[in-house]
Design a protein around this nucleic acid. Sequence first.
DNA 1: TAGGCCATCTGGTCCT
DNA 2: AGGACCAGATGGCCTA
Length: 372
Amino acid sequence: MPRINCATATLKKITMMTKPFGKAGDVSELVSSLGWLDDDVSSVDGEDSSDMRGRCGLTTDGLEGSTELCSDDMEEDEEDDQEMIGPNGEELPKRRGPKRKKVPKVRQERVRVRRVKANARERSRMHGLNDALDNLRRVMPCYSKTQKLSKIETLRLARNYIWALSEVLDSGRSPESLGFMEMLCKGLSQPTSNLVAGCLQLGATPMMLNQMEDKCGGVPGAGVGGPQAGHHLSFPSPGLPSPPYGSLEASHLLHVKGFKGPSYDHPSSGECSGGSPPYDGPLTPPLSISGQFSLKQEPSPIEGERTYTAPHAGHYLSSHHYPASAMGGLPGGQAGHVLFRPPRYELPLEMAFDSFAPSHMVPSQMGAIYSE
DNA sequence: TAGGCCATCTGGTCCT
DNA sequence: AGGACCAGATGGCCTA
């Protein structure tokens, strides 16, 4: 047992030493290159590998491989042939049950190599997942490099965004309405709700809108207005955090073109939901794709990504490049335009969703509704 | 210091 | 046998 303590201490040292340079993978390489560690660790009989990992405070492929060795026949078989000695020197009964099969070293090595490779694949898989999530973040109505949305909040916001856009298209409701904001914020945590609210307001600056018009050929002056016109930062809601937080880049503002700036004269502005309601259930309404897609593929500045252009000025989804990865790959359609048509709900939204908080409702009450 | 978020390792399951 | 996917466990980092 002293030996494992020694190994544990050494591993912790390695962790400290290598911390500035990388993560566990780097440590594992170091450990593997050292080589001697396997011997130390494998001397412990019957150690569960996860226990060992926890106690060492380190996860390394090298160590993992070594623990497999220790749980196999390395020492166990020797003990089968001799009397077990307890901590006080007394004789312990022989281990019962079937004898463990001897595993040849070649196979142990193969298992270890397989595990190392599997770990690498898993890492890479998760990186791919995170990349996709980053792509999703970039097409969200608020994208901030400084305040990145968490994974779960990204997914929630994406769901809400699709839902809100769908509602805008289907009902003709204005995206500048408070309802649009509430849709976006439904089920989000308070910080994320504030972020979204702040982003939408930031986006209403003339500068932003000019950029937007340049990009999409919109009508000059259209969409500019509201109390924030001419101001870059103005946060009417006391609930909003201080900058810096999410900024709405012009490209993202395009998602809500027609959003004429804050018309949030409502007390609940920027506080769409109170707290972080456990709103994680399945989408309330069943979704059905209406199938009204038409798309034009253009060369994208981003390699490997298709771009999609929305049809006409004044459309809420004005011309903008949507990375295909974030769109999930739209089915083909007519040449010339892309109408990004979000899924349509089979039920009227008013019926399908538990109704939004009435305009007179205070945020805390809204939070109560959303948490249902 | 507790809690949230995250990266990583790991073993299990399913599929090819 | 090996790869993909998944969920649980663990520890690190950050923030309120």
